[in-house]
Amino acid sequence: MESASVPLPGGAGGHAADTHQHDHHGPPEANQSSRIDRQTLGILLFIISEVMLFGAFFASYFFLRVVVNPPSWPPHPFELPVAVAGMNTAILVSSSFTIHYALEGIRKGNKQAMKLGLAVTWLLGLTFLFVQINEYVHIGFSARTEAFGSIFYSLTGLHGAHVFAGLMLLTFATIRAFRGHFDKDAEKHLGVEVPGIYWHFVDIMWIIVFFTVYIL
């Protein structure tokens, strides 16, 4: 990690350092002062920005729901498919367990568990998206159906876009896992750890979206 090198007395260390520097290609390694590795820090900062984005959408939702205060929510005659969304919630929460299983597997050096966990997580994520698209097709209103339709599609669609992004990350992680790219050491499975953290965030956001949109 450290880019600076201290030559040893007698010049032997200095020579070794020179050789090392000549072998190094590309820009020098950035100095890392934080106790957290930069990939994990990056995804955490990204998640903080995403929380603010979702916060703006939730603020719009509650503004429409509480301040505008329509006579009925959802407006008559529309109904939200709570049972289907509940099943979808169960699918997404299950996928958090499977990605955790994958990470626990690779932490213990069990690559088969990691591959299985990633593949199942990917399938569960795809199922969630498929069910949500199916729900959009059959729900009976569009994003142009009053403010209710707009905010419903905005919130669930924003989350769906995040599931899609997470699914892309999981696709790369799964392909790399089957190619044998990851190992037991923490720095050698960051390619699964970072998508795993993002996937958990997507899961937490859905739990809140489900409660807010479908239950309240």
Partner: peptide, 25 residues
């Protein structure tokens, strides 16, 4: 700051929101 810590938060959110759903229903 790792996946295991974030997974713990998934469980906390699931339990908290689950109790809110039960109370709402």
């Amino acid at each position: 700051y790792n996946e295991a810590a974030v997974f713990k938060w998934v469980l906390i959110f699931a339990v908290a929101v689950g109790s809110a759903i039960a109370l709402t229903l």
